[in-house]
Design a protein around this nucleic acid. Sequence first.
DNA 1: ATGTTATTGCAACTTTGTTGCAATAACAAA
DNA 2: TTTGTTATTGCAACAAAGTTGCAATAACAT
Lengths: 128, 128
Amino acid sequence: MGIVRKTKSLELVLNEFRCEKTAISAIELIKRLYSKLNKTTIYRILENLEDDGVLHSFLGQEGVRWYAMCHNCSKSKHNDLHPHFECVNCGKIDCLNLEVNIPNIPNRKVSSSQILIQGKCEECYDLK
Amino acid sequence: MGIVRKTKSLELVLNEFRCEKTAISAIELIKRLYSKLNKTTIYRILENLEDDGVLHSFLGQEGVRWYAMCHNCSKSKHNDLHPHFECVNCGKIDCLNLEVNIPNIPNRKVSSSQILIQGKCEECYDLK
DNA sequence: ATGTTATTGCAACTTTGTTGCAATAACAAA
DNA sequence: TTTGTTATTGCAACAAAGTTGCAATAACAT
Ligand SMILES: [Zn+2]
Ligand SMILES: [Zn+2]
Ligand SMILES: [Zn+2]
Ligand SMILES: [Zn+2]
């Protein structure tokens, strides 16, 4: 349905994304805002922000949903076809600004794709 | 832990995969074998078969786990790094025998990746 | 200041999957 | 074939992530 009113709850959720360059899982948001917001509210705000093209979401390795800021998206079109990178060391997930080429497949019509890459992130790469 | 004993339950689960070229979700298996096997048993057999390199698993779009037969895997090494294709029309998922090149990413070490492609499958491609 | 309705919190529920434990079934050895 | 060991199973209860219905509250247009 999208966001209609500017509420305190909305600001609290948006603030978490403003302070953060990486993606945030719904679960993590619920933990962080535990004392201030009900989890139902959080799920609903996330859904609305995604509808509006402010956030995009995807599944991490464990099957829980993560959210990250969109860059060139709007209510009508989402352009978030980039891959995501999950660090096996620290658990952070971030958006990768790169194109992965999906080859044509005979007799099939590809409409979208999700790519989740695992490995060590920039911060964890150097450590030991 | 892997499979140790050849049981009736094991045969029932394996049979589902023998009759099927595509992947099967755990949920679908539980429905199909409802009258014969407890869901706990099914989850445990799937886990053992995956340990043994007989099946491999991955998450579908909705976040539920799917299983498919392995081809060149064993207890010690899994080679199932191929992408999976989920039909937006009929819901089937199958393994794609093709390589998708993940480019190198500066300052990160890539260890694995999951690719889920959506579109219309071979059967649904022709229909209207 | 008031009225409309979007938003919120709460409790209850759903779905997918896991755990502990006692009963049962495989199967190796006698 | 019988017996003993232990892997496997079913059941019930639990757990985590997310959803739904509904009444109370808060935004905000007038
Ligand atoms: Zn890291
Ligand atoms: Zn992203
Ligand atoms: Zn199809
Ligand atoms: Zn596969």
